[in-house]
Each structure stands twice: as C-alpha cells, then as structure tokens.
Write a protein that binds this DNA or RNA. Sequence first.
DNA 1: CAGTCGATGTACT
DNA 2: GTACATCGACTGG
Length: 188
Amino acid sequence: MQPELSKSSVEVAQRLLGSWLVRELEGQVLVGKIVETEAYDRTDAASHSFKGKTPRTDVLFGPPGRAYVYFTYGMHYCMNVVTGKQGQGSAVLIRALEPLEGIGAMRTRRQRISKDAQLLNGPAKLCQAFGINRQLNGHDLQKSPLQVVLQPSLPTENIVQTTRVGITRDTHRLWRFYVQGSPFISRP
DNA sequence: CAGTCGATGTACT
DNA sequence: GTACATCGACTGG
C-alpha cells in the first residue's frame, strides 16, 4: 500500500498538496490537482472520529488510503482520505482541486458554474463535479474508479498553514493547508 | 463587494 | 429536538 498515507493527518494533509485525484465516470476521466486540505484526528473535537467508532465513522477507524465520504446539510457530500495506522481515526478532508482534465464532464455536474476557478473550490463542490457519493465510502483509493495518484511533495515554502473552515470546536488548530497563490482554493 | 439565510437528510442527544 | 467539516441565492451598499 502507500506508506506515505499511514503517517499523521497533519503530515499527510501537506503531502497530498500537488497530488492528483483521478475519477473514472461514465467513460470519462476526470483529474484534479489537490490544492487545499484539512487534517482531522481522534484528539480533535471537530473530527467525526472524536466520539469514537460508530456505524457512520467505521471507515475512519479502518486502514489508511481509503475514502471516507459523508453526507451533510441534507444535500452535500464531502470526501476524506483516511490516514494513520489502522484504528487511529485520522483523516484528511479534500477541500479544493484545480481542474486538470475532463473539465467538460465536470461542468455537466456543475451546470450553473461558468468559471473554472469555481468548479472544484469547496469540499462539496468537488464531490458534485466528480460524482462522489456514499457508494464510494470505504473505497480503496489505489483503485479505479477513484484514485489518489501521488506526485512529488511541494516545498514547504509554497504551503500556507491556517485555521480550518466551517467548524465550531477546536477552531484554533492550524490544520488547514493550501498551495500559496492558487486561484482554485475555497477561500484565502 | 459583504453579510444573511434557506434548503434538506442524517446522526446523535 | 438540534447540529451539521456547505452552497448559492438574495439583499443592501
């Protein structure tokens, strides 16, 4: 498997920047470059794993390199990469992608969007564009039809570290990371 | 621009 | 009941 994903979520969150998310969907190939991530773990009150293993969070406590997909606000999906060793309950939320390939197919699922920069610049937006839903919860991300393809690590000086978005607990942790200067992030 | 707010299903108190 | 790792439409300046 991919040993790089068995490290802590804070390490993996930075490691994943610049890597690709590749989706095969209805005969098309969609590729996005990961430009924004957030780390979550068991010690963190903002994490779904904080209260322990439940039917919903089962995948979070499984092996690294799987997709944890959850449904929220009655209409949106968000996707994480499970990290750490089996049973740790840590994961990295994918918050934004830069579209690289299959932009036409992405637009089919994001009808109202005209600008490329708004296609994948949010965790629920990228799931909509990539057709990611609960069927992919627990999916091994080394396999089709949804893969993480690691690319060389970005230099630290190109990574911005800041507070996470949209949470109400443990808000002080600097566990959000994004590619400096990217126009494809969800917010500055 | 910025700020507010409704939509809408599910997990958990 | 309440909260929710969100989005997009709408308002007012």
